[in-house]
Design a protein around this nucleic acid. Structure first.
Lengths: 129, 129
DNA sequence: CTTGACCTTCCAGTGACCGGAAGCTTCATA
DNA sequence: TATGAAGCTTCCGGTCACTGGAAGGTCAAG
């Protein structure tokens, strides 16, 4: 099937699919007219990639996951470790964002928000007490 | 003062400071030997940038904040709006990350994590029920 | 006088794509 | 059968906010 259909089936834009080919994540055949020709198993790979990317795995992590996916003798512990590591990483990001959020919110709370120039937000950014 | 000291004072790496100059966020003088020469007010700008970047504002937003900072007649409402918009944006990111986190965590919970190949995480990524 | 730290510029790379140009092919319609 | 649109190809460049590294100039200490 052509890239357009593969795009629909995998829920990935064509540009992304071509990019994944460039970095050797997929390797579709070619039709006689030079068009890429995706098999069902290519679509599987693409969907796998779409799903794992959407879960926050980096491309390199996806590569690892794919190789585990294809390894009949994988230990599920390896996959679990990767997933839990990612959970920890996400937790860290959430914590950081919450800190930012609260700081910014507190700053905004203290700001009159009128047409006058006095602004605790700016004062804070400028390092004033 | 030289870039090394400016770096210490602003808590920004020298590379970043040069980059900020390239994109016209700072404009230090030059000493006779060609070295950049930072004034106290340059340091203020750098610290302002460091602080606003660390609060999650993009470079372009920092540019806006800087211009508000320097506008004696600014309306604090403008700054507040920017800050609150950022809060909303951060809230969105947090929500998204929490979703990811929970999905991944649930997946990992269901995984034995042993040396056998059966793995619900992989199954999920592969789209299996 | 040399060593080493610091400074300069310039070029290239990161991650994960996206936009657009120039030029094929294929398909539906007039 | 012509034509025009849609879809495909490759290639190049841009994004964001830096970061690394090479090649070379400058400065203070020993």
């Amino acid at each position: 099937m052509n890239i357009g259909l593969a795009s629909e089936r995998s829920n990935l834009p064509p540009k992304t699919i071509r990019y994944y080919e460039e970095i050797l994540l997929v390797n579709p055949g070619r039709a006689q007219n030079g068009y890429r020709d995706y098999s069902d198993s290519d679509i599987h790979r693409l969907r796998f990639l779409q799903r794992s990317r959407s879960l926050g795995f980096s491309i390199e992590e996806c590569r690892t996951l794919l190789s585990l996916y294809e390894d009949e003798n994988r230990a599920s512990a390896d996959v679990k470790a990767l997933a839990l590591e990612k959970v920890t990483e996400i937790d860290r990001k959430i914590k950081e964002l919450k800190g930012l959020r609260n700081t910014l919110h507190a700053l905004a709370e203290n700001c009159h928000g009128d047409d006058k120039p006095d602004c605790p937000i700016i004062d804070d950014l400028a390092g004033k007490l």
